[in-house]
């Protein structure tokens, strides 16, 4: 399976962290806070769209909300293969990071 892209990984992790509260606004806040950058709505939805098409996330509609122009909140959930994909990236990260000289002590002796 192809590895997730960085933006997909960040979005997918945020959804997992938010669990049942993962809808667009919350995801964007979570992503922005975690990365320290202000993500535009478009920037969040592009990876979201890909994740959905790949079957890593599923959607569920809540009750209609008047603030959303009468639209429902759309909640995102990880599917089993979505979780697998996250685990795969995690595994790659761990492999990459294990056994290398500590970065923060680079200037030591």
């Amino acid at each position: 399976m192809k590895l997730l892209s960085r933006s997909e990984e960040v979005v997918l992790l945020s959804i997992w962290r938010l669990q049942d509260a993962a809808y667009g606004v919350a995801i964007r806040e979570q992503v922005s806070r975690a990365t320290g950058q202000d993500w535009s709505i478009g920037a969040v939805y592009a990876p979201l769209h890909r994740l959905e098409k790949k079957g890593f996330v599923q959607t569920r509609k809540g009750e209609p909300v008047s603030k959303r122009g009468g639209r429902s909140k759309v909640y995102y959930h990880l599917t089993p293969i979505g979780k697998q994909a996250l685990l795969a990236v995690k595994h790659v990260h761990e492999t990459l990071w294990s056994g290398i000289p500590a970065l923060d002590s680079d200037f030591g002796f």
């Binding site: 606004v25 709505i41 478009g42 603030k67 122009g69 759309v74």
Partner: peptide, 20 residues
């Protein structure tokens, strides 16, 4: 410009944040 499956959710987010 917003089309496809994300249209509904994304436009909702815009409105919600705007209202807030």
């Amino acid at each position: 410009v917003v089309s496809g499956d994300i249209r509904y959710a994304a436009l909702g987010d815009f409105e919600e944040l705007y209202a807030d």
